[in-house]
Design a binder for these strands. Sequence first.
DNA 1: GACGTTTTAGACAATGGTGTCTAGTTTGAC
DNA 2: GTCAAACTAGACACCATTGTCTAAAACGTC
Lengths: 222, 222
Amino acid sequence: MGHTQRGQCAKRISILDAAAEVFCREGFSGTSIDEIAVEAGVSRQTIYNHYREKETLFTAVVEDVMDRANAMLYSILSTFPDKSDRLEDDLTAFAVRLTKNCLCNQDGKFLRKLVQSEGERYPHLFETWRQHGPGKIGTALGALFARLSHKGVLRIDDFDLAARQFLALVNADLQMITLFGGTPTDEELENAARNAVQTFIRAYSGTASETAPRTPALAVVS
Amino acid sequence: MGHTQRGQCAKRISILDAAAEVFCREGFSGTSIDEIAVEAGVSRQTIYNHYREKETLFTAVVEDVMDRANAMLYSILSTFPDKSDRLEDDLTAFAVRLTKNCLCNQDGKFLRKLVQSEGERYPHLFETWRQHGPGKIGTALGALFARLSHKGVLRIDDFDLAARQFLALVNADLQMITLFGGTPTDEELENAARNAVQTFIRAYSGTASETAPRTPALAVVS
DNA sequence: GACGTTTTAGACAATGGTGTCTAGTTTGAC
DNA sequence: GTCAAACTAGACACCATTGTCTAAAACGTC
């Protein structure tokens, strides 16, 4: 899995880092090799020595970021406690770790922007992203919710749907910030996570929807 | 508000439409005026006659799309029935209209991609988007939820938060499709809306969170 | 049908980016 | 210190793009 070329040499790393930065800021067409060279503190020829052409460099950058993001994602996913007696607090802390280290950091921003703007141009690369990379965060989260559901701590029919909704809820408050390249403060992350988790738990701590008549609680309450 | 330059002449329209298409597909730097000219069936000089330079054309396109999207948004927002006796069905149909005509159509895709990729480069334009354009869909939806809450049909503390979450939930199932330039089918839109609305109602039909202990609907129903 | 406006096709200079090449310099291993 | 590998600086050909300019053609209005 970790088929990164990092570690080969210090120059490679600074090239990859600088390239990620510039590609993210300017997009593929808007990026010039010279700009990357300056940012990396390296001569242009050195870049061409390591990567045959601009497109080679670009795919190398994407793979590098994807590998790192993927590793980080799995490291975060494993931090949810096995025994959770304070579900809301645990889920909130978990969501904060997830957003801070995966969704709203530099790599997350890079992938979000690049998948959006160049995804159609590189179907292969981003099919990889979707199936083997950070794009499958949804199904990975689904497994976590399956565990929680089987333990009876949540009532979930469709684990993958719940995972997508959980991510969507967490992002609901952060989109406006990240959309413009801003990085949310710790407080904003905390609030976003708290709001999302409260709504999520309210939606998924009741009776599972198939075991009760579809007309929901409202009819019963009134 | 409707400060569009449309209608001046047929050429302008085809230029704006073609430019929107190409800018959306290729991004600002990746777009060449010639490509737009061909797509619009117009000579390059004609484009320079109407718009002084590439950047002028770009901002004109964004304003045009924003105006249209804004009008469409308000037309859709007004379609939610005053008396809603089937809340789930009404909200679902509403969400379908919203996604089909505002969020997932050509204009929605354009704004999503362009705000994401060029937002930092044109702060003024996208501040407009956020405050006076489609970007304020959240607060507009908030007003709707305020109505529903005051009627007692939903229990909502924070209307704007609920609106953001509603949008996020609707998008949860569509993101993977729209992210790659695809357009969801009617069935996918319907399913996404249904899933979102069911979860939303489950989260917001119980007792308001501050007035009752956190364990919600379940307790009331059983 | 005449006249002014709009559009067209193409040539054009200027610019900036890609990728190659060369000659000289640094670096690190032994 | 030597030698090979990596790196640098700069020149270079090549190409695409922007924006201007011109002369001819199409259009529409009276």
